[in-house]
Design a protein around this nucleic acid. Structure first.
Lengths: 230, 230
DNA sequence: CACGCCGTTGACATCGTGTCAATGCCCAAC
DNA sequence: GTTGGGCATTGACACGATGTCAACGGCGTG
């Protein structure tokens, strides 16, 4: 009896994967906006109704693919870190890995971007949404560890909080890559900015702050927020 | 005859504004995803069909509101710049203005974010899309001018290209604010990071790179991209 | 006063979604 | 071997949103 139930579970999981594979293919060809449930069903050679048995709705399916995207991203981060020695080099490797991720898996990157651009209520979140958040957290941990390494080996200034800095770098890098990817061609035309160089030098720009002297030394050069924003 | 044509044009323009006002109200209450053409029509007390006379479709209407959003943002940037003296303080003021913009006009910020997250083909772009791009360019010019001021008054390192740095700061700041706005509550819970402090200290973090010494001095601390990404 | 233009509208066809009852299938029990 | 039950699967339906079109009505013009 256990073997039968087991087989049923495996088949169920397999069909779930089939649906996600199909959705991924459609996402790559038509894009998120044009995709319909019928497209996914046809690609998976299943009835449209069946999709609703395995997933809540299309958002749920997309979240499933998004989870894959976060997994791939985190793996790239980890791989980048392990290939370098000093903390600063490691964190730079994470940045480069993110660039490569956006270039080589643009569909995945778009899913991550869309996920990041939507508010995620802390407790009131779907199970699949939590999966994505958990994977993103693991990626942040990788970055925070690299920063801690840098603090320990003196390649990164010691007054930074590793996790806070990881979040900061994550947000900056993401915004930078997204801007270059979507508005890059326009920028290359109007000004003479290669989007690749823009991102590359942008990462170096961030590296300066990581290695540079703490901000409290030249207090004059860093005026505080004068609007009283808490 | 000119007065009649003129009145007709004014009425037409007025109705366009009415529709955009209605769309803006609906956006604030229901959000982009839930909004329908019927909602806008009802809010504007017009027939749904009439909307299609003045706009192509809902995306077109949203782009109209997005243009307003970019205008408000640019005005805030300019206002921030004129209230400070040194270039570094000016660019910091732009960052603070962007934070205030996101806090006080979240609907506008979301529209800007959505616009930035979509690819804008250089030549193949809607007229209304071009309006938004033009306004964004003006905002970038404001930033680039402030950076140039900083280079001139020695508050910003001189080896930076003003426009490239403006784009870089824009991308970083946007990503930072978006991350804090959407994932802030989660971060505050899991770690002890106030999203306001995160953004504020993030801006200071960027300020270090602006004022800090050029990256070629300590070449060791800035390992180049080893993946050969051009 | 009649004509015509243009702003405006209701109605229609189409499409995508989500649900439900009905079908077919496989296994287990008798 | 046959029958019954549970589960996977499906076609069909109702609903909602979109975009278009012909028809209506008011206003200025000849």
């Amino acid at each position: 009896m256990s073997s039968i139930e087991e087989r049923q579970r495996e088949e169920k999981e397999q069909r779930r994967r089939t649906i996600l594979d199909a959705a991924e293919t459609v996402l790559e060809t038509k894009g998120r906006d044009e995709m319909t449930m019928a497209d996914i069903a046809e690609e998976a050679r299943l009835s449209r109704s069946l999709l609703y048995v395995y997933f809540e709705d299309m958002d749920d399916i997309v979240l499933g693919v998004t989870h894959r995207a976060f997994q791939s991203m985190r793996r790239r981060f980890q791989s980048g870190v392990t290939q370098h020695d000093t903390g600063l080099r490691q964190i730079r490797a994470v940045g480069d890995a993110y660039v490569a991720f956006a270039q080589e898996e643009p569909t995945y990157f778009d899913l991550v971007a869309e996920f990041e651009s939507r508010a995620a209520d802390p407790e009131e979140a779907t199970a699949r949404m939590r999966q994505c958040l958990a994977e993103a957290d693991r990626a942040l941990e990788v970055m925070a560890d690299a920063i801690q390494n840098g603090i320990d080996d003196d390649s990164i200034r010691a007054d930074l909080d590793p996790m806070q800095t990881a979040v900061t770098l994550w947000g900056c890098t993401h915004g930078l890559i997204q801007l270059a990817a979507n508005k890059g061609t326009g920028l290359e035309q109007r000004y003479e900015l290669s989007s690749a160089a823009l991102v590359d030098e942008g990462l170096s720009f961030l590296g300066v702050s990581l290695a540079g002297q703490p901000p409290d030394a030249p207090a004059e050069t860093l005026p505080a927020d004068q609007n009283g924003n808490a």
